[in-house]
């Protein structure tokens, strides 16, 4: 029983990082109706900038976090300008494949600059875990959960209570009409993209500081986990992204404990597959209707 609860707690904590990854992903998807495969690799680039700062200049965790988030946002803007901005209308598959090509490029760039397989990453906290009855709570995990909930609220607020959010929602509704009422669609989309990558950067920093290392494989990991959590939670839904991440985390934690890492990964994909077949809208998303392969109606 203690194991069960402890695993659930750990799952919720790890799941909050999946939720954060999904949050950035779903923001990009919501605005662009396009899948950005380079999402994880952009975060990985941020991580590499962070580790350089840490290893070469001995920067503290906060400075590393700042540069990592900035690095991820800049990499995100690069991806948007090259893969998405030139083909805003139609050509959804082309954007996706193009973002895959840039993924390969970013990964190679990271390996070129730092050729060793793993690099150290600063831990956020080094204290002993908090004890709460028979259960253990890691401080960095709690920060992760706090960030996930805080950022979800912030995004929700920004989308529904600010002028920029209003502009984004107008673009989501109809980009041509948004353009006609004077919204600078190109800039707004680029900023949304940068914000999404920055959220990914926060998630990436939290995960890497728990792992205390960064490898080139982190890009693929982040893309896949974000994608699974986003689809389980419901495509385009912001609270759904967090819920999907938490569910994924809890399922993974239990499967890891009882059956080992292979079954853990298998279970994640089974949950995703079953959700897509039975309830493709996910936990909180709307039922699928729009098709990324089809051009958006002008």
């Amino acid at each position: 029983m203690i194991d069960l609860v402890q695993n659930t707690i750990d799952g919720v904590m790890i799941g909050s990082s999946y939720g954060l990854l999904a949050l950035g992903f779903t923001l990009i998807f919501g605005v662009m109706r396009r899948l950005n495969l380079s999402y994880g690799p952009s975060i990985m680039i941020g991580g590499y900038v962070g580790t350089v700062l840490y290893v070469q200049y001995g920067a503290g965790p906060l400075a590393v976090a700042g540069t990592m988030i900035l690095g991820a946002a800049i990499a995100g803007i690069y991806v948007e300008r090259l893969c998405f901005a030139p083909m805003r209308m139609g050509a959804g598959i082309a954007s996706m494949v193009s973002s895959f090509a840039i993924w390969m490029q970013l990964e190679q760039a990271a390996i070129l600059v730092l050729p060793r397989h793993t690099y150290p990453f600063p831990p956020l906290t080094t204290g002993a875990p908090l004890e709460w009855g028979p259960f253990l709570l890691r401080l960095d995990h709690l920060i992760m959960l706090g960030c996930a909930l805080g950022l979800t609220a912030a995004i929700q607020f920004a989308l529904y209570r600010t002028r920029f959010g209003l502009a984004l929602r107008a673009i989501i509704g109809n980009p041509v009409a948004a353009h006609l009422v004077g919204i600078n669609v190109s800039v707004a989309v680029m900023l949304a993209f940068a914000a999404a990558s920055a959220i990914g950067g926060v998630a990436g920093f939290l995960v890497l500081s728990v792992d205390q290392q960064v490898t080139p494989m982190f890009g693929m990991w982040a893309t896949l986990k974000g994608l699974i959590a986003m689809m389980i939670g419901g495509l385009g839904s912001i609270p759904g992204a967090i819920l999907g991440g938490l569910l994924l985390g809890v399922v993974e934690a239990h499967c890891q404990w009882y059956f080992g890492p292979q079954i853990r990964d298998l279970a994640a994909y089974i949950v995703l597959f079953v959700f897509l077949l039975v309830h493709p809208g996910g936990l909180l998303g709307r039922a699928p209707g729009s098709d990324i392969a089809a051009p958006r109606t002008p």
């Binding site: 090259l82 139609g90 193009s98 490029q105 990964e107 190679q108």
Partner: peptide, 21 residues
């Protein structure tokens, strides 16, 4: 060697802008 994915990835991205299909 070390630069091939950088060149190739960039080429593909540019190609897809010019010829999306």
């Amino acid at each position: 060697a070390g630069y091939r994915m950088i060149i190739f990835g960039g080429l593909v991205a540019i190609l897809l802008i010019i010829r999306p299909r």
